[in-house]
Simulated scan of single mutants.
Amino acid sequence: MADISTHVPNPPPKWIENFAKFGLTAKGVVYCLIGIIAFMAAFELQGKTTESAGRSGILRTIQDLPAGNVLLGIVALGLLSYAIWRFIQAFKDTEAKGSGAEGIGKRLRYLFSGLIYGAFAYLAAKIVLGSGGSGGGDSRETLVSKLLQQPFGQWLVGIVAVATIAAGLYQIYYGYSEKYKKKIQSGGLKHDIEQKMIRAGKVGYIARGVVWIVIGYLFIRAALQSNPQEAGGNTAAFQFLENSTYGSFILGAVALGLICYGVFMFMRAKYQPIHT
């Protein structure tokens, strides 16, 4: 990682800050929409379904708004900005995580996040250009299908499942323990703003962790049954929650948590210091 970072040009600090804030805002828009549509799906408002709360569904929702292609293009650029910022955090170590085992692990998380949101930006751009699919073919189902074709395929899917559940548990721990407070408190914010950010972040991280755990559980089912159709992303996770006991209320609560996470992103964009 350190060798790679020496070949990455040192961009102007303001450039990094602008990309980070633009990216956090775009991420906030996406999560607020996911939460709103999932909440509407939970209580069957205006005909919304859990399908509408998936990645393609959210992007299509933006596209259907007045001047939708322009708005979706802005969101795509924002998500790309977020991905680039994550790459800079990983390669340039702007968060000073270091080159030890723990530091490399955290920087790899930034890199993985950049790849995820880069792919999301690519999907948004495809839809803007009219070449995006209509939601057919979940990327996680495709991943599971390819893994199952490999030697020890079920074990590989099981490893991905465990890693996903572990990531979800860490999100819940990260939110409940309020470990993210350090970044917020370093900005010298007013106490009331700081407390609002901490509360929004806690609820948001926990809700996000629940979704990741459900996705991991679906991967386990796919591994045990050797069936890629058992896997899925947000849409499948929301459907699972909705079909459980008191499902509408559980999905509604998770949806509100995701809205809080989106609001937390907006607050980070406005108030959090960006290290360059």
Results as ranks from 00 to 15, higher is better:
170 Y>L: 15
213 I>P: 04
156 L>Q: 12
199 R>D: 11
228 P>Y: 03
182 K>C: 11
160 V>P: 03
166 A>F: 08
230 E>G: 09
217 Y>D: 09
118 G>Q: 03
136 G>N: 01
201 G>Q: 09
188 G>T: 09
168 G>Y: 11
131 S>A: 03
121 A>R: 00
140 R>T: 14
209 G>A: 12
177 S>R: 08
194 E>W: 07
161 A>R: 00
145 S>K: 09
157 V>M: 02
210 V>E: 06
164 T>S: 14
154 Q>F: 05
134 S>G: 13
126 K>P: 01
118 G>E: 01
149 Q>P: 03
159 I>A: 15
212 W>R: 06
226 S>I: 13
140 R>E: 08
148 L>V: 05
160 V>L: 14
227 N>W: 10
194 E>A: 12
126 K>E: 06
195 Q>D: 11
166 A>D: 05
163 A>P: 02
156 L>F: 06
184 I>D: 00
159 I>W: 07
140 R>K: 10
211 V>S: 12
222 A>Y: 13
212 W>C: 11
202 K>N: 11
218 L>C: 08
155 W>E: 12
131 S>V: 09
226 S>L: 08
174 Y>F: 15
215 I>M: 15
135 G>T: 01
225 Q>A: 11
214 V>T: 12
211 V>E: 12
122 Y>M: 01
136 G>W: 00
149 Q>C: 07
220 I>K: 00
148 L>K: 03
201 G>T: 08
